[in-house]
Write a protein that binds this DNA or RNA. Structure first.
Length: 400
RNA sequence: GGGUAGGUUGAGCAGGUGGUGAGCUCCGCUGACUGUAGAUCAGCCGUCUUUCGACUGUGGGGGUUCGAUUCCCUCCCUGCCCA
């Protein structure tokens, strides 16, 4: 791909919106290496494949000779991004923040070139930020402007609490752009408001406002909310191959377009062809999803890992035979033996004895392949058992 | 500061002004069906209990009472109105 084509691709592929695309095009056409900012809060360090979309755009900037500027939000982490619903966040210790940042960076550099990345910590400028500076920052913004933001507006309408310090979050993130002199900032569409505030604040500090490029959001495996670790609907970049494969297979069919366009290495033409075949019934939805799952695992692990994961999934889930390696637990059995519900609890397959009893009654428990009906069955020490609950959970239990 | 409405099991609610709140909808779990899921259907969905039952739970703490989710005191948290 030539440079013009690469620029075009950068500005359109998986991109939701470019603020002032004309201005960004002129910057990209110039000789000056641009400073392309991306911020993250070191609250939860694990990246998921939805983040991959933004990282890949950042990498595309690098490939055109620009510099990635990663801002570690060690200050704003203590507020919590208001675009997440949860208001209460634990205050992290400095050590936790550092550890999270390290984990994050290791995953980040799987996509983004380390050599052309500048890592900056917010505390660098915010630790010496005085009340005067806070005043200056706040005075340039109005309450009306702040509460027009959709998440605040929504919470206010619902009668949910909005804390004052949360309104500070966008301002602090915006000031980061001043501190690192960002030319461009990237983010998901949920970051649009924060990114726009950055432009205003930069103008106030005499800088040219940054250009903004937002990426399409990936919908989580529940098919409803955007992918997020805290929602439990995410696939982590470092999740093991089988995990990634199986979780991809569990997405609803309706999500295939969203995923095919965002999380594959396919070109737009390839993705559209894939979707056209699906729509015209030339591809079975299951086969299509398997193709997608293979692509995801291949991308983050390897083709071999993807093939293995698929073979295992076919056997275990599709074929209904869970035979693979299972976690092994050792349980010390009292002289009288251990009852089935206790065994389930000890193996971590039930949260309480009552739950264990219910599972047995509902016919969801198998021991060594046999469905169990007697919730009072006792097990003696010395014999190991393979215990399964439902289709997914299993443990090998060593009784001593 | 004044007023007012609230805080009930993971979430959202109902109920409840002294005589047993485990009731609903989500979520979740198990089974059936399928194409793995989803959808649909059936069941379950506080803890303990060989099933008879027992215990815990209505923001925290204290009080009155034979008995408190209910009455009283106090503290914490949230919405709205007024200033």
């Amino acid at each position: 791909m030539d440079r013009a084509g690469a620029i075009e691709d950068l500005l359109t592929r998986r991109v939701a919106q470019v603020v002032e695309s004309g201005a960004l095009r002129r910057l990209l056409a110039g000789d000056r290496p641009l400073r392309v900012k991306l911020g993250f809060d070191p609250t939860s360090p694990d990246l998921h494949i939805g983040h991959g979309v933004v990282l890949e755009r950042l990498r595309a900037f690098q490939d055109l000779g620009h510099t990635a500027v990663l801002v570690v939000g060690d200050t704003t982490a203590q507020i919590g991004d208001p675009s997440e619903r949860n208001t209460t966040r634990p205050i992290l210790s400095a050590d936790e923040v550092r550890a999270n940042a390290e984990t994050y960076l290791a995953q980040f550099h799987r996509v983004v070139d380390q050599a052309r990345t500048e890592v900056r910590w917010q505390s660098e400028w915010f630790d010496t930020f005085g009340l005067r500076e806070v005043f200056a920052l706040m005075s340039r913004f109005t309450l009306a402007r702040m509460i027009e933001r959709d998440t605040f507006a929504k919470r206010l309408a619902e009668g949910a609490p909005v804390s004052m310090h949360e309104t500070l979050y966008p301002l602090l993130q915006a000031y980061d752009s001043v501190a690192v002199q960002a030319d461009v900032e990237l983010g998901g569409t949920d970051q649009t408001f924060n990114l726009l505030v950055g432009r205003d604040v930069q103008r106030d500090f005499g800088q040219d406002p940054q250009q903004i490029l937002t990426c399409e959001l990936l919908v989580g495996i529940d098919g409803v909310a955007k992918m997020s670790k805290s929602m439990g609907n995410a696939i982590g970049l470092t999740d093991p191959p089988y995990e990634q494969y199986a979780r991809t297979m569990s997405i609803p069919d309706s999500l295939l377009p969203n995923w095919a366009r965002l999380v594959t290495r396919w070109t737009d033409a390839e993705a559209e062809a894939f979707l056209a075949d699906l729509a015209a019934d030339r591809t079975h939805p299951k086969a299509a999803k398997q193709q997608l799952a293979r692509e995801i695992v291949s991308r983050w692990h390897s083709e071999e890992a993807a093939a293995e994961a698929e073979a295992r999934w076919e056997q275990e889930v599709s074929g209904g035979q869970l035979v693979s390696e299972i976690e092994e637990t050792t349980v010390t059995v009292p002289l009288a033996g251990i009852s089935l519900p206790d065994l389930l609890v000890a193996a971590g397959l039930a949260s309480s004895r009552s739950v264990g009893r219910r599972l047995v009654r509902q016919g969801g428990v198998r021991v060594d392949g046999e469905f169990q009906t007697d919730e009072l069955r006792m097990f003696a020490a010395g014999i190991d058992h393979e215990v399964r609950v439902g289709k997914r959970q299993a443990a090998r239990v060593r009784l001593t």
